[in-house]
Every structure is written in structure tokens, then in C-alpha cells.
């Protein structure tokens, strides 16, 4: 009788142990699949020197690094850029995005300069920060830094992207200058060069009509009217 009790107790104990171990492996499956992140490293050529695009995590490899719970994904374009890109054969509308990326429009964060003359100016309204001639980032609103820390959390890896890699390069420089860890920020390049399996098409052309499914985009607009200007 005593022996059978002991056996039952052992079986129950073993059931708990086996169940616990199995659960651990099942519920940690996502983590085990995550690739170890290489340290940010600038790629070769002008893509590296001009934009700081990453050598290891970029348009060709980003699919391997999506859906990570230790990372955030930010696309720095506007839905509709105010620059006249049609005048030079371009498109001012955001035409596609990679699954998992949320749009935080860079021109609303910082004054953008240096666009081609024919394009004119991009968004010229109020921005959260101003880059001064001395190269200093100055907050224009009391909440500016809080906004950055909310959308670009310091404890996560930050994957940046835009159209060609320019806005995301500027965003990376800005974050590093403002105290973010440079080893956690990756400029993954431009959506124009992306041919992976996670594209979400925003631009549609049917019967010679073009439309944009902006409802598919998680877009973080900035309403400065509700913010408090720094005096």
C-alpha cells in the first residue's frame, strides 16, 4: 500500500516536471527562433557613407529579423510627402511598406533640408525638434523627448527604414546624438530595394486608376496643437 502511494506520488511529480519542461519549450519557441543580432555595421559604398545603411541587416535580410519581441520597427516616411516629386517623375505617396513596420514621419520630427530644387520643400510645418546650424538638436515642445522615447524605446533594438535610406539615416544620427545606444539602432535601408516576402502594397493601379490603401498603414501622426511649446 505504501509502495503504491509512493509510485503515485512519483508519477504525479514526473507529470508536473515533464509538463513544465514541455510548456517551457512550447511557449519560448519564438525566442528560440530569433536570430542573434549582429552589431550594427555600416555597409560599403555611398549607401554606407551617405546614409549609414547596415551591412548585415538591410533590404535583403530584414525578413530574417522581423517579428522580434526585443525590437521595434519604424518607417520614417510620410503618407504623402509635400515635396513635388511628380515634377521629377517620382511619387510623393507612400506606395508600400514591410509588415510590422509602423510609420513615424521623420519630417514631423525634424526640419528636413537639402532636397533637390525641383522638388521644392517637403513638410514645412512645426516639428518636434530643430537641427540648428551648429548641428544641435533642440526640442521645440516639452513632450518632444517623451515622444521619441515612447516610439523609439531605448531598451529595444530599433530597425529603421524609409524610401531610399535617407530619412532613416538621419533618424539614426539624431537618436545617437540624443543619447541612444548606437549598438541598438539599425538603418535597414529603403523600401524601394525590398523584394522580400513581407511587403504590403499600398499603391493600387486598376483600370488606369491609382489608389492608395493608407488604412493598411499604422501611422503615428503628431498633433503639435496639443503639445506645450518650449519657451
Amino acid at each position: 500500500m505504501k509502495n503504491s502511494n509512493i509510485i503515485v506520488a512519483i508519477v504525479i511529480l514526473l507529470t508536473f516536471v515533464v509538463g513544465g519542461v514541455t510548456s517551457y519549450f512550447i511557449f519560448n519557441d519564438d525566442n528560440s527562433k530569433q536570430l542573434e543580432l549582429p552589431k550594427p555595421e555600416i555597409t560599403e559604398g555611398i549607401r554606407g557613407t551617405n546614409f549609414g545603411i547596415d551591412k548585415n541587416i538591410n533590404e535583403e535580410t530584414i525578413d530574417n529579423y522581423l517579428n522580434r519581441n526585443d525590437s521595434v520597427y519604424r518607417d520614417m516616411r510620410m503618407l504623402i510627402d509635400e515635396g513635388d516629386y511628380e515634377s521629377i517623375g517620382g511619387d510623393s505617396y507612400l506606395s508600400g511598406i514591410i509588415k510590422g513596420f509602423e510609420v513615424v514621419p521623420f519630417p514631423l520630427l525634424l526640419n528636413v533640408t537639402g532636397l533637390p530644387e525641383t522638388v521644392g520643400n517637403t513638410y514645412q510645418g512645426p516639428t518636434l525638434f530643430t537641427l540648428t546650424d551648429e548641428g544641435e538638436y533642440v526640442a521645440n515642445y516639452e513632450e518632444s523627448m517623451e515622444f521619441l522615447e515612447y516610439y523609439f524605446p531605448k531598451d529595444k533594438n530599433i530597425f529603421l527604414m524609409c524610401g531610399g535610406g535617407g530619412y532613416s539615416g538621419m533618424m539614426k544620427s539624431m537618436l545617437i546624438e540624443l543619447g541612444w545606444d548606437k549598438d541598438k539602432i539599425y538603418n535597414t535601408g529603403g523600401h524601394w530595394y525590398y523584394n522580400g516576402n513581407n511587403n504590403i502594397a499600398i499603391k493600387n493601379i486598376s483600370s488606369n486608376k491609382t489608389s492608395y490603401d493608407f488604412w493598411k498603414v499604422t501611422y503615428h501622426d503628431i498633433d503639435v496643437d496639443v503639445l506645450h511649446k518650449v519657451n
Binding site: 555611398i46 549607401r47 551617405n50 546614409f51 510627402d81 515635396g83 516629386y85 521629377i88 517623375g89 517620382g90 511619387d91 537639402g114 532636397l115 533637390p116 522638388v119 524610401g163 531610399g164 535617407g166 529603403g190 524601394w192
Partner: peptide, 9 residues
């Protein structure tokens, strides 16, 4: 080229 690209410009 690509119109929106500063390097293209």
C-alpha cells in the same frame, strides 16, 4: 536614378 534619392540628385 530614383527621384526621391539625394544621392541620385
Amino acid at each position: 536614378y530614383q527621384p526621391l534619392c539625394a544621392a541620385s540628385y
